[in-house]
């Protein structure tokens, strides 16, 4: 069509991203759980006076300081495990991916946009947690920013890969939601939501170190304290991310 008034045509990738962003912003429930809930949890825990006092049992650190990395990883778990799998399986179930695949645009563009949006939302949530931790509870900003960013990105990739894996193996949206919820609780536990990893018995803490979110939380904790995160934690998170991504690609069905 040649119309003088027509605006410059959007590129397909950008049009998909713009549409998916609008749709993402129309899901207040998902937005609350990803962006609102982690910071709310931090605020509630911070309201407990004992958590704000230096604890001699933990080398003088305050409990609230352990909870900042936990709340950061919780944002990723919410985005990757709770919010994203039902969206992707729903798109498959409703034939939205098939519909896109009979246009010159590949349906991968839709999946990429959804993963990117959930990743960005969890990053926004992480920043909010860090800022609130700093301003409200006086938790120092990460002492090793580069290591912190690396650990943060690995955690996001892990969560998205796990979510993609769940979407790949779940035949229906209902099953995806069910698997997401089943994986959600152990993930929260390994991220230290109920008990900070530092307060776990040694054996349990060692086991948790081999889980994707247990490793990510500890890497974040080390970087927050000013040290470069240990390669074993980063390696565990990276390995999980790689394995889950491969599994997701291997088993994903477009219809």
């Amino acid at each position: 069509m040649t119309s003088a008034a027509a605006p410059a045509k959007a590129s397909p990738g950008r049009a998909v991203l713009r549409t998916e962003t609008r749709l993402f912003l129309r899901e207040p429930g998902s937005l609350f759980w990803i962006i609102g809930f982690p910071v709310l949890l931090l605020a509630i825990l911070g309201a407990i006076p004992g958590f704000r006092e230096p604890d001699p049992a933990n080398g003088g650190q305050r409990i609230i300081e352990f909870y900042v990395p936990t709340a950061v990883v919780l944002a990723m778990i919410m985005a990757g495990l709770q919010a994203m799998p039902p969206v992707i399986t729903g798109y498959r179930e409703r034939g939205i991916l098939r519909r896109m695949s009979v246009t010159p645009v590949r349906p991968q563009a839709v999946l990429g946009a959804q993963m990117g949006l959930h990743g960005v939302a969890s990053l926004v949530s992480a920043l909010l947690v860090i800022v609130v931790g700093r301003l409200v509870f006086d938790v120092a900003l990460p002492g090793q920013p580069a290591g912190y960013v690396l650990a943060l990105l690995l955690a996001i990739v892990c969560a998205l890969a796990l979510g993609a894996f769940i979407s790949a193996v779940a035949p229906t949206t209902k099953i995806a939601t069910a698997i997401g919820s089943i994986v959600f609780f152990p993930s929260m536990f390994t991220a230290g939501v109920w008990l900070p990893i530092q307060a776990m018995p040694d054996l349990l803490a060692d086991i948790v170190s081999f889980t994707p979110f247990g490793a990510a939380v500890q890497a974040l904790d080390q970087a927050a304290a000013g040290d470069w995160p240990s390669w074993s934690h980063l390696g565990v998170a990276a390995l999980w991310a790689a394995l889950l991504s491969l599994g997701a690609v291997r088993w994903f069905r477009w219809e």
């Binding site: 590129s11 034939g95 939205i96 010159p104």
Partner: peptide, 28 residues
């Protein structure tokens, strides 16, 4: 396509614009 749907919260205009952007020479 038979039994295919769109995103439940996409508007008619957004769907038309999205799919128009998928083609090199779309209709108005």
């Amino acid at each position: 396509l038979q039994e295919s749907e769109l995103q439940p919260k996409i508007t008619v205009q957004e769907a038309l614009q999205l799919y128009a952007a998928c083609y090199p020479d779309p209709a108005d």
